[in-house]
Amino acid sequence: MKRFSRVNVLLLLAVLALAVTPLALGLGAGKEPFAGSDALAEQAIVDDHPDYEPWFAPIYEPPSGEVESALFALQAALGAGFLGYYFGVARTRQRQRDAAAEQPRE
């Protein structure tokens, strides 16, 4: 593998390790391990300010955790799909430019 690709793979592995380590070490605690930090903040507000009433409710809420995860997956897929498309186009363009530059002019 070339140096360029090797470094890229290492970068991805480091990200993976950062995400998996807390899970592997079982750092999650409490009623719901690895809950969202936004839910924890909501809880902290409710605990310290029991009289606070959220004055606005979401206009649409996914009916279940499954539907919500589907929508999050859709968001990630759309983004990743476009990124893949972009790199496909950019790489092809770059190759064509290189090929055109190599062609001897008549």
């Binding site: 950062l18 995400a19 380590t21 807390p22 899970l23 750092l27 999650g28 605690a29 409490g30 391990p33 690895f34 809950a35 969202g36 930090s37 936004d38 924890l40 999050f72 997956a73 968001q75 990630a76 759309l78 983004g79 990743a80 799909g81 476009f82 990124l83 972009y86 790199f87 186009v89 950019a90």
Partner: peptide, 27 residues
């Protein structure tokens, strides 16, 4: 334009990825 879309797509992907952290919660 296409690169602009890619920058937006990058934000789109990353903010959909909830990742576990050392505090025992996700963000």
């Amino acid at each position: 334009k296409l690169l602009l879309g890619a920058a937006g797509a990058f934000t789109f992907v990353l903010s959909a990825l909830k990742i576990p952290s050392v505090t025992g919660s996700c963000s």
